[in-house]
Design a protein around this nucleic acid. Structure first.
Lengths: 192, 192
DNA sequence: CGTTCTTGTTAATGAGCGTTAACGTCATTT
DNA sequence: AAATGACGTTAACGCTCATTAACAAGAACG
């Protein structure tokens, strides 16, 4: 498998810290000096690794969207033919992602407009495809009247699953995971 | 009743436009000139009505939190004794609010850290009390093991209900309202 | 050993932006 | 009619901050 054990490259360090800082105080609220300091180099040193501050955000957002979509597609194929299993797998995958990368989840819907037009379009397109994955299986399972309603339901459940950043880790990971699973399934179930 | 038909005062115009702009592009992403232009006066003219840009955000966030809490308390009293009715009323009220004031919902969890310490504390306290209202009735209805789980569930359902800004108005208001109601009840129901 | 590429550094630049100053203009009051 | 206060305006100040310039020090390599 490709589970990496290497030391993280400098680029990766930067992206990780930038994600954390952007999530905490917003894109405009964080200075390049601060990002640099977080990885032990000073402000302008970042420009050896990225063409600019915007580029960091772009790479983060595109990266998230791609990972979400790829994961979703893989899961949809693995369980193809059994919609119930597909939905369960999509939910599990989304929860894993939301719990592993809370800062990225926060960025995902918070800072999309700060992107250059081209990047924003790309992210939006990836998001749409990911949503579509869910809408298809939801409509297979629960015959909700209109597609607009199915789409609304999917977005709403995303909101539910993406609430992890607001949950101080008051409960352990497995507990939170279980609660979110039950809530998500319960919500969709109420569409019948 | 107190349904106002008066023309909105200048202060109110400013707050409304500021809310919209802050929600669209973030607190730091909006300039005072822009806010001024949105109400037909020019940048520094705002300082006749507010001591500064921060004050606008503060008044918005404190205002939201107070309205949410007040509304919640009123509903909790009106249906006191019947937990099922209380929860239903809280859900309806929250949905109404989320649909009426999408920009404010967005601000509510996005720009809290930009506040001065005192204001932020006040908002946090109001939020906690509002959450508490929900947690109490949820625990009455669904004997979920720990309080942490109940709290997590409530936050998650808030995420669900607050997803309205992501829903382009693809479906009509009453449709969206119905979907959200069913989803929220279904989610809580899965706690049993 | 000299050259070059990589990866930093600090100092300077220049734009954006919140805020204040200084100044008008009505409407209201005395 | 004079004075005052509410509500705007434009010009200037000062600070923050992303980005660029100019320069160093060590690794890779001929």
């Amino acid at each position: 498998m490709s589970t990496r054990t290497d030391a993280p490259t400098r680029r990766e360090q930067i992206l990780k810290e930038a994600a954390r800082l952007f999530a905490e105080r917003g894109f405009h609220g964080v200075g390049v000096d601060e990002i640099g300091a977080a990885v032990g180099i000073s402000g302008p040193g970042l420009y050896r690794h990225f063409p600019g501050k915007d580029a960091m955000l772009a790479e983060l957002l595109v990266g998230i969207s791609e990972r979400l979509l790829d994961g979703g597609r893989r899961r949809a194929e693995e369980a193809a033919g059994d919609p119930r299993a597909v939905l369960a797998s999509l939910i599990d995958g989304h929860i894993d992602f939301a719990l592993d990368d809370r800062p990225l989840i926060t960025l995902h819907d918070r800072e999309l407009d700060r992107l250059r037009d081209a990047d924003r379009k790309r992210v939006r397109q990836l998001q749409r495809q990911y949503v579509e994955l869910w809408v298809v299986v939801v409509r297979e399972l629960y015959p909700v009247p209109t597609e607009a309603e199915a789409r609304a339901a999917v977005h709403a459940v995303f909101g539910l699953l993406n609430s992890t950043p607001h949950l101080g880790p008051g409960a352990g990971r497995t507990v939170t995971e279980g609660v979110l699973q039950r809530l998500a399934h319960g919500a969709f179930g109420a569409l019948a």
